[in-house]
Amino acid sequence: MGLLYRLSKPEQAIAWEGDMPITSRYTMGIAGERFFRAILDDEALWGTCCPECDVVYVPPRLYCERCFAQLDEWVEVPNTGYVYTYTIVHVDMDGNTLEDPRIMAYVRLEGTDGGLVHFLGEVDPEDVGIGMLVEAVFKDKAERKGSINDIAYFRPI
């Protein structure tokens, strides 16, 4: 036997199916709570600023990853920015073809060192380009929950 042993019939191959029965519940955190509350309540985007390192973090962070200082200086940032890079998504998570391709972009927000990954809307894929100026389109207040999806998408200005 040893390593030379092989199953003689394919039906002898046995497999067991299972999963991990958990749901993850993520808190937004100290900085995240304030960021998403401002989106929920005021359609506003905020960042935190490290004066020492001259960095404005969006999404905001509780601390500066460079100098490790606690960041207490909050700044409201514009809901406009430019397309830093983008992709056109043709398949869903399971590999099925999407009827309408979606445009995903990393939007660098004006005056900050950060930005958001989000969808682009009100634009044809062929018209999108790196450097394009865009703005956030917020959902109606009634639909907002304090989530990144409270922004429907970014659209060209």
């Binding site: 191959a13 497999a15 067991w16 199916e17 999963d19 993520y26 989530s147």
Partner: peptide
């Protein structure tokens, strides 16, 4: 009172019994 997101990993696994345990099960 607190914002949060939930996520279900929805990962389904199929584990092969392998050689020794396959024979054990037979």
């Amino acid at each position: 009172k607190v914002l949060f997101e939930t996520w279900d990993p929805n990962a389904k696994y199929t584990w092969d019994a392998g050689i020794a345990i396959g024979k054990f099960f037979q």
